[in-house]
Amino acid sequence: MKDNIGMCALCKEENVELRESHIIPKLAYKRIKAFQNSRFRNFYDINSIYQDGEKKPLLCSNCELFFSKYETHFANNYLDKFLEGNRKLPKLYDKIDIYIFSVAWRILYDDLFILNSFDGEYARKVFEEFEKKLLCYLEELRIGSSPTSPQCIKNYIFTIRDLGFINEVAEFLEPSLFGYSFHSGDQSKYIVFSHYAGIIIATVYRPANVIILGRKLSEYILDRYTSQTVKKLLNEEIIYQVNKMIEQQPINEKVLEAGLREKIKNRYKLDKKMNRGK
């Protein structure tokens, strides 16, 4: 494989080897695998396989190492507690906030500069402001400074059931992983969110001096308003994703019936044999 040489997206060092960096960290994928050697498939192109999640040439080895300590902490001290306990979320604290910021930045960078997702001039400008704030915060942290949390940005974490979905929807979504950026219809909130293992993680940017209902609101009222409306916005976005998945299912079923289902079945039989032999 030819080395990817370029500029690291975080530290901006040039002419370095770029690692195949996970957008959503590998440890999240590892914890929802059905079997040790099982793989993930793109729901909208189920012949497209990811061994351990989507990767892009993004970071140098030093920046990968910087992120990895927060990923390990999140997996061991937050995600595992959720999965092994009663599925209630532990409280957020500094190291978990940093982990969430790091994933939000990767998703946003991918959307902006690799996928080039945003066409509207104003929306793109605000998303670029959002990315820059996260980047500056993470870079200061990387070099050993003690930055304050990025201004006008806040993390939220919910279970899929917290958003009002019934058990059937939660069980349908639980083995899926996805993450992307979107904004509210009034463009007062810009959101990067991800889903895995029944958890919804959202990083919300509210541009300064936003006017809601025709007037500026105090910070206290605005925070309370944002907390309530983030749930509503995420609920609407998840419904949108579920409807897209439902529309895609007949297409996937045709591919499965054409031979893919048998291939998957045989592979998982092999996985079970391998796991019993260890």
Rank of each mutant, 00 (worst) to 15 (best):
M1F: 09
R261Q: 14
L135I: 08
R276Q: 15
T229K: 13
D3R: 15
E139F: 15
T203E: 06
N86D: 15
S149N: 13
C8N: 08
F130R: 03
S61I: 03
V210W: 04
I211Y: 04
W105S: 03
P207C: 09
T203W: 08
I98T: 06
G53D: 12
L234F: 04
K91T: 07
P25W: 06
F182L: 07
L89I: 10
L92T: 10
E131N: 12
G214V: 04
K125F: 11
P90G: 06
D45T: 06
P25G: 02
D80L: 09
N252F: 01
C11T: 04
E257A: 14
E128A: 01
L10W: 02
K273I: 13
F178N: 09
E128C: 08
D97H: 15
S218M: 10
R161Y: 05
F165S: 07
L270Q: 06
I239K: 15
I107T: 10
C60I: 11
K272E: 14
I107P: 03
G53I: 11
S38V: 10
G198C: 00
N155S: 13
E174A: 05
L234T: 01
P147G: 05
F35E: 14
D162C: 07
Y190G: 00
P147T: 02
D45Q: 08
Q248E: 11
S117E: 13
M245E: 05
R224W: 08
E14Q: 13
L18C: 04
L92R: 10
C11M: 01
I98N: 03
E168Y: 00
L112V: 09
A104H: 03
N86H: 14
N42C: 14
E257Q: 15
Y93D: 15
S21W: 07
I191D: 02
F66I: 11
K26V: 02
I32S: 10
E121L: 13
Q249T: 02
E140D: 10
Y240H: 14
K263F: 04
K91Y: 03
G120W: 03
P57I: 05
R87M: 12
L141A: 11
Q249L: 05
P57Y: 05
Y156F: 15
Y240G: 00
R19T: 15
E139M: 12
F178W: 13
D223M: 07
K133M: 06
A28V: 11
K154N: 14
K263P: 05
C60F: 00
Q151L: 13
F193W: 13
K88R: 11
Y268T: 07
I211R: 11
E84D: 13
E13R: 14
N37L: 08
S61C: 01
Q249D: 03
R261E: 15
Y109H: 12
C63D: 08
L177P: 04
I23T: 10
R31E: 03
F172A: 10
K81I: 13
Q249I: 07
L138K: 03
I153G: 07
I221F: 13
K278V: 14
E174H: 00
L222F: 12
I114P: 02
R87I: 05
M7S: 09
I246V: 14
I107E: 01
I246A: 06
K12S: 08
M274H: 01
I199H: 00
